[in-house]
Design a protein around this nucleic acid. Structure first.
Length: 488
RNA sequence: GGACGGGUAGCUCAGCAGGUAGAGCAUCGGACUUUUAAUCCGGUGGCCGCGGGUUCGAGUCCCGCCCCGUUCACCA
């Protein structure tokens, strides 16, 4: 089949017609000409014929040949239009060359746009030219491309065969743009911090390791930008954010890709409750703009982002949904017994914090369909968050959940350098005890805190998960253009 | 890493009682100037994921491996 197409390509060349053209001047994108035509039709009187002259370019996605007339569907990024070519209209010589076209080829066409008798907006061609010859067929016209592995490994085929996939990614793009504009309008400055970290910090996760040859040092792909963004706040930036990739060397599933996109912001003079208000406003704005309303459906769940959102203390949520009161104890073993009694599996390596976290994910999270903030987390789970003044076992931290997905994480940032050092040391002890996800001690970050970071609140939003919600995608791979698969 | 499901033509899929590998679409040839999943007639096309085994004979049964999906474990 490929050989056949190469022969056709060569025939164009033999006729002195380059099959891989350079620039092509269009008068309209396909979507534009459709809109222009429909607008004129609305103005036109009854029986009055509407015609638009147009030069269009696009990929042939379907072809219906009828002897001396041929219909094709032509698609560009903005839409699809039917093209009619008649032997009389384009000339017999040019018409004969249509034999050398295939589905997948790019052509340029000029002519007049009318409606056919059957009501289809159609470009009646007077001339056409090959722009790019395709040498391989992509997919079947009716079923498209459904093989998930091919869709992910060869995303270009997915985009060609399944137009709704492009819609999904355009929604993601729009969502990020809306988020960025919201932040910029409120005076946040977008910054870029390193991807290569000498010490991986800012989250509890296993890092990817790489090597710098000239320095002969190992570096880690960042697991979070947090500690660098806070250094900027130390330096005097008061409102900063970054939208960029994080890398975590963990398992891959429908909600986790090894590289994922995170928005992190830091705001001086703010605390977690104030930031909760801002987060609610921000997510409400971004989601409702992206899905086109305050309600949307995610995996069969109807979700309303109408404000105000529910706010519930983590321990209260556990009491409500798990029926146990973990706040009564700080003892690891007792917490483990309570968790096991309600069927949550606990293993001996889990500390108090992880037990609370396990109960939350298994018993609480599945109920958080409508937007909900959980807040006030135990200190063991939050080594970078400020303690609550009235209860040093808790931190000023919250997480927004929507559609049972955890979409973010925020807290009043710990800016007491001595407390931060003690927390890092506790993490180091966990690490020594075999927890390879415990956080590393970053001496320079502590130095920065000793210089002084003003009161600050920080927020991270998982962009991919937000995109999943806005596009009703069951898997994170549906919202990442090139998701990570095993190399073949 | 475990469990379950899957890998057959370019695409979407059938075939499993072990007996020469099938359909639709695409493609190639023929008819057709208003079709839109066009229609009608005829044709081409396959390391049946990879490797081993059982058998006269394996897409089909057995063993090992690879890849994908779902899920559990770990995590965001």
């Amino acid at each position: 089949m490929r050989q056949n197409r190469i022969r056709k390509m060569e025939r164009f060349r033999a006729r002195g017609d380059e099959p891989y053209k350079r620039k092509f001047e269009r008068t309209h994108a396909i979507g534009e000409v459709r809109a222009a035509f429909e607008a004129l039709e609305k103005q036109a009187g009854p029986g009055e014929e509407v015609v638009v002259d147009a030069v269009l370019a696009g990929r042939i996605v379907a072809r219906r040949v009828q002897g001396k007339s041929t219909f094709m569907d032509l698609r560009d990024e903005s839409g699809k239009i039917q093209v009619f070519m008649g032997e009389k209209q384009v000339g017999p010589e040019s018409y004969a060359c249509l034999d050398d076209l295939d589905i997948g080829d790019f052509i340029g066409v000029s002519g007049k746009v009318h409606r056919t008798r059957r009501g289809e907006i159609t470009l009646f061609a007077s001339q056409w030219t090959i722009l790019t010859k395709s040498l391989r067929p992509s997919a079947e016209k009716w079923h498209g491309l459904t093989d998930v592995e091919t869709r992910y490994r060869k995303r270009y085929l997915d985009l060609v065969a399944n137009p709704e996939v492009m819609d999904t990614f355009k929604k993601r793009i729009f969502m990020i743009q809306t988020l960025r504009e919201w932040l910029l309008e409120r005076g946040f400055l977008e910054v870029e911090t390193p991807m290569l970290h000498p010490i991986p910090g800012g989250a509890t996760a296993r890092p990817f390791i790489t090597h710098h040859n000239a320095y002969d040092r190992d570096f880690y792909l960042r697991i979070a930008p947090e500690l660098y963004l806070k250094r900027l706040v130390v330096g005097g930036f008061e409102k900063v954010f970054e939208i960029n990739r994080n890398f975590r060397n963990e398992g891959v599933d429908t909600r986790h890709n090894p590289e994922f996109t995170m928005m992190e912001l830091y705001e001086a003079w703010q605390d977690y409750l104030g930031l909760m208000d801002e987060t609610e406003e921000m997510l409400h704005h971004v989601i409702s703009r992206t899905v086109g309303g305050e309600e949307f459906v995610y995996q069969g769940m109807t979700i309303s982002v109408k404000r105000p959102w529910r706010r519930i203390r983590l321990y209260d949520a556990i009491r409500e949904y798990a029926g146990i009161d973990l706040e009564l104890t700080r003892d690891r073993d007792e917490a483990a017994r309570m968790a096991e009694r309600i069927g949550v599996e606990i293993d001996s390596t889990m500390g108090y914090g992880k037990i609370v976290d396990a109960v939350m994910s298994e018993k609480v999270q599945p109920h958080l369909v409508q937007p909900t903030f959980l807040y006030d987390y135990p200190i063991e789970l939050s080594p970078l968050a400020k303690r609550k003044p009235d209860n040093p076992a808790l931190t000023e931290r919250f997480q927004p959940f929507i559609g049972c997905l955890e979409v973010g994480n925020a807290f009043s940032e710990l800016n007491d350098p001595l407390d931060q050092r003690a927390r890092f040391e506790a993490q180091a002890a966990l690490r020594a005890a075999g927890d390879d996800e415990a956080q590393y001690l970053d001496e320079d970050f502590l130095f920065a805190l000793e210089i002084g970071m003003p009161p600050t609140a920080g927020l991270g939003i998982g962009i991919d998960r937000l995109a999943m919600l806005c596009t009703d995608s069951a898997s994170i791979r549906e919202v990442i253009l090139f998701p990570q698969l095993r190399t073949l």
